[in-house]
Amino acid sequence: MSRLQKWFWGLALVPPLSVFAVWGIWDNAKLFFITLLNGLTLASLYFIVASGFTLVFGLMRNVNLAHGSLYLLGGYVGYIVAEKTGLFVLALAAGFLVAALVGLLMQVAIFRFMQGEDLRQTMVTIGLSIVIADLLLWGIGAQVHQMSAPGWLAGPLRDIPLITAYSKYRMALLPLGIIIGVLLWLFLNRTRVGMMIRAGVDDRGMLAATGVNVNLVFAATFAIGAGLAGFGGVIGAVELSMVPGEDVRLLLASLIVVIVGGMGSVVGAALGAVILGVAETYGLAYAPTYSVVFTFVILVMVLAFRPRGILGQAA
């Protein structure tokens, strides 16, 4: 971005947002800060799901539109495990593992045969997402499945300055999202496997020539990406409950996050998630009727001026 562009965007965005912030705090400080917290915690959930999407979509150029179905699957598995065992941590692990396994199967059985064929991948995964959603509807039904938060996270956190009380569980999402983000970044940028993934994305043939089993690396990446969707599903099953239709919602959110943030970048996904989460919650709090519009205005702006996303690079 040139210096001129930076100045332009600085002038176009910073003054109106700061005016809004000052007015918001002056008008009702409690509402303003609770909404900020709501936005950040929602962003955390979006980030966990979208980071899996960005791994698969951005790094591996695999268009997996069944990502939302993996979220739904993970959520239901988590619900069932939690009901049977009563252990939330086990539910999280089960949601992650089952989704990762299904993701692995998808990579081995489907994506391997259509490497680089975007349109075919898109069509096949749309089909898969419909099949998975209908199988889940058939097997589990359409009722709302509301998972309970584990005992130590149930109820409100009281006596916080300014905002008095806030849901413990929701608060816990914030550090969780940050931890997952940092781990993912370290994994991709500081470990040998992470290096291989990045190298494979840049030049698959060259990586294979150095003696690395590229298929294995990609399968592992896909499994992790899918697992993150399942993991997000278990988290979402507590906060937002699980019901058919959630798959599409989270897929759309992940797409927006990845498009706004920039494909294939963990930091970009985090940025995109924060922008989406904050825009959605502020929209709902201050202009509920138009809340949907903000999301798409952001999307339009980004596509118009930064078509590769805010932190995106040329493929």
């Binding site: 929602l42 919650t281 502020y282 709902l284 509920p288 809340s291």
Partner: peptide, 17 residues
């Protein structure tokens, strides 16, 4: 009066109001 979207799921903002 708070009007929320049907199927909106996340009511944290409304609860804050």
């Amino acid at each position: 009066k708070a009007w929320v979207p049907l199927g909106g799921k996340d009511y944290a903002s409304v609860i804050a109001r």
